[in-house]
Structures are given as structure tokens and as C-alpha cells.
């Protein structure tokens, strides 16, 4: 009996030693050197794997950074400046801090502004619907409201409002670019979040001339150039019958908002009061109302969000944009 045990232990032990020796040499021969910094950089990244940086995932992004040895041209939109600084520390480099961005929906063709002229009956996909017609409202450039952007979003940051059938971006947005790619009409754009989260943009991408554009939608940009003429900073460019505000140049003076005859230029997160005192005489009453509505609409989304987060004391503006993504990342991790 003892013999059996001894033989077994002996033969297996010998086998183990032989295998270990073979494995050691094989491992030596096939050793692949991998820069340990790749792991470190990956560690620093939010591991959302959203692809917003333009790489296949966080690992691919980390590999690209380590390979190039510089941080120029690399930006993690999800983590923003903080994460890039961390990555910079790992790499021993100074991170170029990119301005945080947010997705902006440049169409306000709500069911009210651009009433349906036909009824779509088919699969719920903007990409599919866009191949058979221009849209229920008749505008060839407008939002179809079928939610390809919502589908593409990994961060629960864009939702089609069932009342208006226009998507709304919440502060969850990390500017990963997914919705920009998903939108078949190229309506969504990434813009700088701006000072105090204030943004001004033309909420229309229509390239038709004024008359047909206005026929389909009450709030279309008709290419009248009024905003272009009034802008003191040269931030507005006119192209293809429509205005475009360059967010780098815009100083948020709001002169264009006031002159726009179709209310196509939107301002976000500006206090209502200040506007009243400043431009009381210049804008007619009707316009005032819509601006009010616009801002409350914005507040509304934030309010619902607040109840979701159960932080009732917090005012919507105090909530910074950076906070939510990092929360989100914690959840994901």
C-alpha cells in the first residue's frame, strides 16, 4: 500500500518538474514585452468603452497614447480634463485640457412647430424612415423623432420627448459622439458646454430657402442673415441658407437671439430675469413667452432628473456637468 503512494507521488512529482522546466523555457522564448504603462493608463480611464475618443475602447485608447508618447490629439470625452490629467501623470506629460462638450439637438420641429402632414407607419428607426420620406412635418432636414440617438446612447443622456417628438439632452451627456453618428440627418452636434453651462446655438439645420422652410416649420432658420449682421464677434457664418454659430467665437452676448425673426436661435441656462430688464422693449410679447417656455422646458428635464437622484435641495444649475459622468462611471465600474 505504501509503495503505491510512494510511486504515485514520485512519478507525478517527476512529471511536474519536467513540465515546469519545459514551461519555463517556453515562456522565456515566447515572452511578449508589453509596456506596463498601458495597464496604468487603462486603469486611469473610466472604462466606459464608449468609443467616444475614436478608438475601439479604453484599452485601445491607452495603447494608442502609450505608443505615440504624447497626449496631443487624445481626449477622453467621458472623463474630461480630470481623467486626462491623471493619464498625463501616468505618462509624465502635461495634458492639454480640452473644453468639455455636450451634445446639442439642432432641430425644434416639434409636433406643434412643424405639424404632421403625413403619418409614418413602419419600423422605429430614423435611418430606415429617412430612406423613404423626408419626415412627417415635411422638412427634409428635420428630426424624425424615432429615437436612433436615444438607442445609440450608452449614458441615458438623450431622450425623445413624447410630447414634442424631439430629443432632449440631459446633463448625463459625456459627449461621446455616438448620437452624432447615429443621427441620419446630422442634426446633433457636439458643442462646448460653455461658461456656466450657457450655450447659444441655431436650432435648425434646414438648407431650404426661407419660404419653403417656413412653410414646413414655424421655427426654421430662414437664412435672413439678421443674426449675422448683428453679431459683434463675427461668430456667425451663413452657409446654405442657414446660420451657424461658432461656439469658439461666441461670447454669449445674446444679441442674435433677440433679432431672430423665427426664434430659431436658442439660448440655454440664461437667467430669465436679466433678459427681461435688458431687452424689455426690443422683443414683442409673444417672443418673450416662447423664451420663457424654452427655459422652463429645460428646467423641467432637470427637475425630473433631480427627483430621480433624490437631491431635492439642489438647484439645477449648481449641479455641474462633471459630477454626473463620474457617478455614472462608478456605477459602470
Amino acid at each position: 500500500m505504501n509503495e503505491v503512494i510512494i510511486y504515485t507521488v514520485g512519478s507525478l512529482g517527476a512529471l511536474a518538474i519536467v513540465a515546469a522546466v519545459i514551461l519555463y523555457f517556453v515562456a522565456q522564448k515566447f515572452k511578449v514585452f508589453e509596456d506596463p504603462r498601458i495597464d496604468d493608463v487603462e486603469e486611469a480611464l473610466p472604462s466606459a468603452n464608449c468609443g467616444g475618443c475614436g478608438y475601439a475602447g479604453c484599452r485601445a485608447f491607452a495603447e494608442a497614447i502609450v505608443k505615440s508618447g504624447t497626449l496631443e490629439g487624445f481626449n477622453c470625452p467621458v472623463g474630461g480634463a480630470d481623467i486626462m490629467t491623471d493619464v498625463g501623470k501616468v505618462m509624465g506629460l502635461e495634458a492639454a485640457i480640452a473644453e468639455p462638450q455636450i451634445a446639442v439637438v439642432r432641430c425644434n420641429g416639434t409636433v406643434k412647430n412643424s405639424p404632421a402632414k403625413v403619418k409614418y407607419d413602419g419600423i422605429s428607426s430614423c435611418a430606415a424612415a429617412a430612406t423613404i420620406f423626408s419626415g412627417e412635418g415635411g422638412c427634409s432636414f428635420g428630426c424624425l423623432g424615432l429615437g436612433d440617438c436615444e438607442e445609440s446612447c450608452d449614458f441615458d443622456a438623450i431622450h425623445v420627448n413624447p410630447k414634442t417628438m424631439i430629443p432632449e439632452v440631459t446633463s448625463n451627456c459625456v459627449a461621446c459622439n455616438a448620437c452624432v453618428i447615429a443621427c441620419p440627418k446630422d442634426i446633433i452636434e457636439l458643442r462646448n458646454v460653455g461658461k456656466k453651462e450657457r450655450r447659444i446655438f441655431v436650432s435648425c439645420v434646414n438648407e431650404e430657402k426661407g419660404a419653403p422652410a417656413k412653410k414646413n416649420c414655424d421655427v426654421a432658420c430662414i437664412g435672413c442673415s439678421k443674426c449675422f449682421n448683428v453679431c459683434p464677434f463675427d461668430a456667425i457664418e451663413m452657409k446654405n441658407n442657414r446660420a451657424y454659430i461658432d461656439y469658439e467665437k461666441c461670447k454669449l452676448c445674446r444679441k442674435c437671439v433677440v433679432v431672430c425673426p423665427t426664434e430659431a436661435i436658442h439660448e440655454i441656462n440664461f437667467p430669465l430675469k436679466k433678459l427681461k430688464t435688458e431687452v424689455k422693449k426690443e422683443i414683442p410679447k409673444k417672443e418673450m413667452e416662447t423664451i420663457k417656455v424654452d427655459i422652463t422646458a429645460n428646467l423641467e428635464t432637470k427637475t425630473t432628473e433631480r427627483t430621480k437622484d433624490e437631491k431635492p435641495g439642489e438647484s439645477p444649475k449648481e449641479k455641474t456637468i462633471k459630477e454626473t459622468p463620474s457617478d455614472n462611471n462608478d456605477d459602470k465600474a
Binding site: K117, V118, K119, Y120, D121, G122, T131, I132
Partner: peptide
Amino acid sequence: MSLLTISAS
């Protein structure tokens, strides 16, 4: 008459 329906073939 209600709105015309648009759908793919």
C-alpha cells in the same frame, strides 16, 4: 380625410 400613411413597401 385623415393624414396619408407613409410606409415602406
